[in-house]
Simulated assay, not measured.
Amino acid sequence: MKTIADLYFRLLKLLIVLCMLGMVVLVFGNVVLRYAFNSGISVSEELSRWFFVWMVFLGALVALKERAHLGLDSLVKRLPPIGKRFCLVIGHLLMLFITWLILSGSWQQAQINLDVVAPASGLSMAWFYGVGVVFGINAGLILLYELFLAVTGRLSADELVTIKDSEAADEIEHLQHSQQARAGRKA
């Protein structure tokens, strides 16, 4: 099961790269065509905006799975394991509620705009709002799985803190521990 999930998120990363590549090609190509040939790609602006929205939502999914979102952990990391678990459960329940709002709102918008076509491309606007549905389903599954692990006690004390202040803070903490270890050896 883990292999399937890893392959799925590798596919998402590939889609993110393809969205970025599509944006670059469309925008750069449009600029070159406008300045060099006094013409352009009429769907360039619209499709690049759609690629950007899909790239952001898919990137947020990958970051959620890899626990790569930034946050403030200075209080939570000082709590005992039961406090960390409580904060994780409350945080995940709140995120599940927000994910539900995104999912239900995007689903309603996709249904409303199913027959509405985009002005430049002629594609259904449901494709634009569909990314919220994709995000909501995937984020909900990730959050439910992590909530299950937290409630059943399958996460270590370190895994209960799902965010980091920044990578610089981790490096500073590592350097402080190194200095304390050296000071302990000198004494």
Rank of each mutant, 00 (worst) to 15 (best):
V117R: 11
G105R: 02
L141Y: 04
S124Y: 02
V76M: 02
H69R: 06
I98W: 11
I112A: 06
M125W: 11
G91M: 13
K65M: 04
D73R: 10
F135A: 01
K77W: 02
V116N: 10
I137W: 08
P119M: 00
A139S: 14
A120G: 07
D115G: 12
S121R: 04
L96Y: 01
H92L: 14
R85L: 01
N138Y: 00
A68V: 06
A68P: 03
H69Q: 09
L70C: 08
S106F: 03
W107V: 09
G132K: 04
L88T: 07
M125E: 11
V134I: 13
L96K: 07
R67D: 02
S106G: 14
P80D: 13
S121I: 00
V134H: 00
A139H: 13
L79M: 14
F86N: 14
L96M: 11
L114F: 13
P81S: 01
L123A: 08
S104R: 12
W100A: 03
G140V: 04
I102N: 04
G140Q: 10
K84A: 04
Q111R: 14
P119W: 00
I112L: 15
I137V: 15
V131D: 08
L93P: 01
L72M: 08
D73I: 09
L141K: 09
G132D: 09
G140F: 07
L70A: 12
L93I: 06
G91A: 05
T99E: 05
Q108E: 15
I102Q: 05
Q109C: 10
A63Q: 13
S106V: 05
V76W: 10
V76K: 08
L96A: 02
V89E: 05
G105H: 12
L101S: 05
G83Y: 11
L79Q: 13
N113S: 12
G136D: 10
T99P: 02
F97Y: 11
G83A: 07
L96N: 01
A120Q: 06
P80M: 11
Q111M: 15
